[in-house]
């Protein structure tokens, strides 16, 4: 005999559908109300016309687009290279900080000082120190391009943050996991590679990606060293026209650049939540 839903169940499903329709309607009308209010407040402001002309000018936006976009390609290159080295250096520092052997004490000390220093120093300061200080040393084999030095400064600062995130992940892995692996005869480094790190990375993926999103937009700061990235390009345009729209164009492009990664982070977090709920009893 095939299953036929009872009248009670059909009734319950109908009630559920009605409630869901009502929720959609409420969400829609509240969104409209808030949007309407916002438009009213902004367009009603005294300086609205002036701001509109100097920040939201379509003519200047179109004009600035090609050079700002060209600058953004530089940001893209910088951040891809920086992300790679940040993850690598961050991982090494995190591993260094979680070692326990007394022989490695100096390594731990250096790693600790490194993270303390570069998490404490403002990024802008690091950029200036590296970007202007290192060329000042006049060492012939060190490149003095603003792009390279800017990338180095980004890597220095962000790998300190990322190292701490990864370290939290490593320490968050249940000690019994490490013991179980050691009991099976795996060496210390095999345990780290095959048991601890996979779980550590899974636990910290959301905060890790959060740092990478932040790095994406901070790649714009290399403009202070003179590299012609999106922000610098916008600045050049603005200096010619005395209109601030190009900055807004650059801002919009940066937002577009980070959205894919933020959405990916959200998706991954949700997936992990679902898995944890499935694992947890009740």
């Amino acid at each position: 005999m095939t299953y036929q839903p009872s009248a009670l169940q059909l009734q319950r499903e109908a009630a559920k559908r009605r409630a869901s329709r009502r929720s959609t309607l409420i969400a829609l009308s509240s969104t409209l109300a808030v949007g309407f209010l916002l438009v009213l407040v902004i367009t009603g402001a005294q300086g609205y016309e002036m701001v509109k002309n100097s920040f939201f000018n379509w003519h200047y936006a179109k004009q600035a687009m090609p050079s700002v976009f060209h600058g953004l390609l530089l940001n893209l290159r910088v951040l891809i290279i920086a992300e790679f080295f940040v993850l690598l250096l961050g991982l090494l520092i995190a591993i260094a900080r979680t070692t326990t052997s007394p022989v490695l004490y100096p390594v731990r000390l250096v790693a600790t000082i490194y993270t303390d220093l570069f998490r404490g120093l403002p990024l802008l300061l690091v950029l200036l120190l590296v970007g202007l200080g290192i060329p000042g040393l006049r060492i012939s084999w060190i490149p003095n391009s603003a792009v390279v030095l800017g990338t180095v400064a980004l890597v220095l600062t962000y790998s300190a943050y990322v190292a701490e995130v990864i370290r939290a992940g490593i320490e968050g892995v249940n000690p019994t996991q490490r013991q179980a692996a050691r009991a099976l005869g795996l060496t210390q480094s095999q345990t780290l590679e095959h048991v601890v790190l996979p779980q550590a990375f899974r636990n910290v993926t959301p905060p890790l990606l959060n740092d990478l999103v932040s790095l994406q937009k901070d790649s714009g700061l290399i403009s202070v060293l003179g590299a012609v990235d999106a922000i610098r390009a916008a600045g050049i345009q603005t200096a010619q026209s005395f209109n601030f729209t190009p900055y807004l164009v650059a801002g919009a492009l940066f937002v577009l650049l980070t959205i894919p990664l933020t959405r990916f982070t959200d998706w991954l977090t949700r997936k992990q939540d679902a898995r944890q709920r499935a694992q947890g009893q009740w």
Binding site: S6, L8, R12, A19
Partner: peptide, 16 residues
Amino acid sequence: NDGQINLDGIDISAYG
């Protein structure tokens, strides 16, 4: 997915 649960005479599986 179907059926009913009553606690003290009240249908606790009712929607809402």
